[in-house]
Design a binder for these strands. Structure first.
Length: 541
DNA sequence: CTAGGGTTAG
């Protein structure tokens, strides 16, 4: 069992695994069935040798052994030092269990090993990687001396939590405190600029990268990602081409992903032709195939994946399955799904969505039940629930939809997002249950969720269908207040007034649209005939 | 001993 555990990666761990791991570790420690090549006395006498061993386990990706070794040191009352703790903290990070990290932190405080800059930096890193942002910031604030590594750790901390504004704040603070920037700093700066879409700031950082002139492969990758994120693929290509010498896989992958994100599929495929594509590049490229509904190209990717032996890569298989589903090939998607050995939550969600979007709501619900029966191995998340709810909506499965919505909060402790409410309201509205619609709305408000435009749209549609004039007008008013300039919403409201026969309001809204210069957007649909993309535009009045 | 780049679902 412990052998299996050692091969678990942190991404596949969930809460059940956490308690399993702790239980198994305790079991082994209690029965002392774990043996090492070192006798217990040599373990405690030669601490630097043991530190090396712990670090070795961590480096080999075996945090469980590292932890067990550390625990036996602790039981033997050995004098551990800061080096021991930093390695063990990395083991906690790999296990993704902040409870273990907190235990280590407590021991560090007790022995005074927590005072150094390096120790504190390890703590910041551990807390942030285990998802405890507050604790990480607290440790950073307690630091007396902060070197550039400590600052960089804090930067990554905010970036990991998707807080780029705070990250830029850290960068400014580093400037104020005259901390010298390292390559790591610039890397994080580029990531911040990418997520903030801050083109000018990013260009300035590019200048600093050029001045630094070191570690160009990593920084070039970050630059490519930045330029792609702000829509400047040509600049990304320039960075790629201007780098002479060795380019690694990640750099190619970054460019492929950038081209795909900017719908430059031809270039993406050309870049993939430069080297033997790896699983990540193929995954990126498949997104392009899905978006284009390009089944032909998708099949090419599939055959490359098979030839390269990537059939056990869950993420790649998920992308393939999704591509087939989006192209309407449900049975191909299904056979791919069946072949995935380690299905994760995305595999299940994609397959449920595949059924749902192709009008097979019953099968979507059945698969969801199967997923839940798997004994909690893979837990559904909010996206899974959204897929099930929307499948129920498309197929008119009212009871199933109601059951699913109940499960979300009561069984899985998830708080519904506005999108879940909108889907649910839609289901109830189509079923003619207008009182249910409004009680769902009140339920949402009571739970402190603010109605979004999507909620008002769902309510308005329900009111149109059920001739709920009074409350429909309320929804219409809120929607226009929230998004006064979005023509599709004005059209929706106007359709509502048409549905209840208020033609005076319809005319009024038409003239509002004219004076504001709002034009009804064209409806787009993609069809793919014989591998040729034809973009069919339909302009309806 | 501590910090950095690329991938999948709505």
């Amino acid at each position: 069992m412990i052998q299996n555990l050692r091969h678990k990666t942190c991404s596949t761990l969930n809460l059940n695994h956490v308690s399993n791991i702790i239980g198994i570790i305790n079991h082994y420690l209690h029965h002392q069935t774990f043996t090492t090549n070192f006798s217990s006395s040599s373990l405690t006498q030669n601490i630097s040798q043991t530190n090396f061993l712990i670090a070795l386990h961590v480096r080999r990706g075996d945090p469980v052994s590292a932890w067990i070794l550390f625990h036996s040191l602790h039981r033997a009352h050995a004098d551990v030092d800061a080096y021991t703790f930093t390695s063990v903290l990395r083991a906690c990070t790999l296990l993704h269990i902040s409870q273990l990290g907190t235990q280590v932190h407590a021991q560090m405080v007790k022995t005074g090993a927590d005072s150094g800059t390096v120790a504190k930096t390890s703590l910041v890193d551990m807390y942030s990687k285990c998802g405890s942002l507050d604790e990480a910031v607290k440790v950073f604030d307690e630091m007396g001396q902060r070197d550039v590594v400590a600052w960089n750790a804090l930067l990554s901390c905010f970036l990991r939590c998707d807080l780029p504004v705070e990250a830029v704040g850290v960068l400014r603070a580093m400037g104020r405190e005259n901390v010298e920037r390292s390559e790591f700093t610039l890397c994080s700066a580029l990531k911040s600029c990418a997520s903030l879409k801050a083109l000018e700031l990013g260009r300035q950082v590019h200048g600093l990268v050029v001045c630094m002139g070191r570690d160009m492969v990593v920084l070039s990758t970050a630059l490519i990602d930045f330029y792609s994120s702000v829509g400047c693929v040509d600049d990304a290509l320039k960075v790629f081409c201007s780098l002479k010498g060795w380019k690694d896989d990640m750099m190619y992958n970054s460019l492929v992903s950038g081209c795909v994100r900017n719908r430059r599929y031809g270039e993406a495929f050309r870049v993939m032709g430069l080297v033997r594509p790896n699983a990540v590049a193929l995954t990126s490229a498949l997104v392009g195939c899905s978006e284009n509904l390009d089944l032909w190209a998708g099949k090419q990717m599939h055959s490359v994946a098979v030839r390269q032996g990537f059939t056990r890569e869950t993420q790649l298989c998920n992308a393939l399955l999704d591509m087939y589903a989006k192209c309407g090939k449900v049975s191909l998607a299904q056979s791919l799904f069946d072949g995935i050995c380690e299905k994760d939550v995305i595999s299940w969600t994609c397959m449920i969505d595949a059924y749902g979007r192709n009008g097979r709501g019953r099968e979507a619900v059945l698969l969801f039940q199967e997923m839940r029966k798997e004994g909690g191995k893979v837990l559904p998340n909010s996206v899974t629930f959204l897929s099930v709810l929307s499948a129920c909506g498309h197929s008119g499965l009212v009871e199933e939809g109601e059951k699913c919505f109940k499960l979300l909060r009561e069984k899985y402790g998830l708080e519904p997002d506005p999108e879940h409410y909108a889907c649910y309201i839609d289901i109830l509205g189509r079923a003619g249950n207008i009182e249910g619609v409004w009680s769902a709305y009140h339920n949402m408000v009571e739970h402190g969720t603010r109605p979004t435009a999507g909620i008002w749209v769902a309510l308005l549609n329900a009111c149109s269908l059920n001739q709920d004039v009074e409350r429909g007008e309320l929804a219409a008013k809120h929607l226009l207040q929230l998004e006064p300039n979005k023509s599709s919403y004005v059209v929706l409201v106007s359709n509502f007034y048409a549905a209840i026969g208020r033609w005076d309001r319809v005319d009024e809204l038409r003239s509002i649209m004219r004076t504001k210069g709002l034009v009804k957007e064209a409806g787009n649909s993609w069809i793919n005939v014989l591998g040729l993309n034809q973009h069919a535009r339909s302009l309806s009045v």
